[in-house]
C-alpha cells in the first residue's frame, strides 16, 4: 500500500511538467480544428478517441490544405508506425496488468514512452505508473482541446491570423528537435523532396506521403555514415 502511494506520487510529479506541455499542444490543436470546420463536439471527440498529438495536428493541417480522407489516413498510418516500436519496448513493463494491458495500450505515444522506459529501467515493470502518467496526459489533452476549440470558435480566422497558426505551430514543433546530422539531413531532404513534388505538380496530394517515406532514408544513411566513420 505504501509502495502504491509512492508510485502514484512519483508518477504525478514526473508527469505534471509534460502534461502542461501537452496541454499547450492540445490548445493549438483545438484552435486549429475549428479552422477546418470541426465543431466543439467533433474537435473534442477526436481527442477523446484518437488521443494522439502528432496524428491529430497533422490531420487538421492536411484538411486545411484540402487533403482527401484517404491521404490523411495513409499519412497517419505512416506516423503511427513508431507506436509499434513503443509498444514492443513497453510490453514487458506493462505485462503485470494482464487483461488491462489492452486498455493501457491506448495511452502509448511519445511522452509516456520516454517516461515509462526510464521508470521500468529503474524499478522494473510498473503498469500503475504508466496508467497514472497516461491518465494525466489524457485529461490534459482533452481539456486543452476543449478550451482551444472554444477559443477558436469565437475568433475571426483571417483577422486573428489563425490561418498562420498552422505553419507556425509546425515550425514550433519541428525546431526544438533539430539536433544531430541525421535529423537535420532528414529535414533538408524532406524540404527538397516536397519542393520538387510541389513544383512538378502544385497542390500534389501525394507530397506528404512520398516525402514521409523517402526523407527518413536520407537520415538513416547519414546515421550509418557518422557511425562508421
Amino acid at each position: 500500500m505504501i509502495q502504491k502511494k509512492e508510485t502514484i506520487k512519483t508518477a504525478c510529479m514526473e508527469a505534471l511538467p509534460l502534461a502542461l506541455a501537452i496541454a499547450t499542444y492540445g490548445l493549438s490543436y483545438g484552435v486549429l480544428a475549428t479552422q477546418v470546420k470541426f465543431s466543439l463536439l467533433t474537435a473534442v471527440s477526436m481527442s477523446v478517441f484518437v488521443f494522439s498529438g502528432s496524428a491529430q495536428l497533422v490531420t487538421v493541417a492536411m484538411l486545411a490544405g484540402g487533403a482527401s480522407l484517404i491521404s490523411v489516413l495513409l499519412t497517419v498510418i505512416l506516423l503511427n508506425l513508431r507506436n509499434l516500436l513503443y509498444g514492443a519496448a513497453l510490453a514487458e513493463g506493462l505485462a503485470p496488468a494482464k487483461k488491462w494491458t489492452a486498455l493501457l495500450a491506448f495511452g502509448i505515444s511519445d511522452e509516456p514512452f520516454v517516461l515509462a522506459t526510464s521508470r521500468f529501467k529503474k524499478v522494473g515493470p510498473d503498469p500503475l505508473y504508466f496508467a497514472i502518467v497516461t491518465g494525466m496526459f489524457y485529461i490534459a489533452w482533452i481539456l486543452a482541446a476543449f478550451f482551444g476549440a472554444l477559443i477558436g470558435n469565437q475568433l475571426d480566422p483571417q483577422k486573428w491570423g489563425l490561418d498562420l497558426a498552422f505553419p507556425v505551430t509546425f515550425a514550433a514543433l519541428l525546431v526544438p528537435g533539430l539536433k544531430g546530422k541525421p535529423v537535420i539531413g532528414t529535414v533538408l531532404a524532406a524540404t527538397v523532396i516536397a519542393m520538387v513534388l510541389e513544383y512538378l505538380k502544385p497542390g500534389n496530394e501525394l507530397t506528404i506521403i512520398i516525402t514521409g517515406l523517402l526523407a527518413p532514408l536520407v537520415g538513416l544513411y547519414l546515421h550509418r555514415r557518422t557511425n562508421h566513420a
Binding site: L79, L94, I108, T211, L220
Partner: peptide
C-alpha cells in the same frame, strides 16, 4: 506493438527510420 511485436527483435535501422518519419512529414507540411 504491445501484443505482437514484443517478442520480435526489431532492427535498429527500422527503429531509426520510424523515428525520422514524423519530422519528415512536418517538414513536408511546412
Amino acid at each position: 506493438g504491445v501484443v505482437f511485436m514484443a517478442r520480435q527483435k526489431m532492427s535498429p535501422s527500422l527503429r531509426l527510420y520510424f523515428n525520422y518519419v514524423p519530422i519528415a512529414i512536418i517538414a513536408a507540411l511546412l
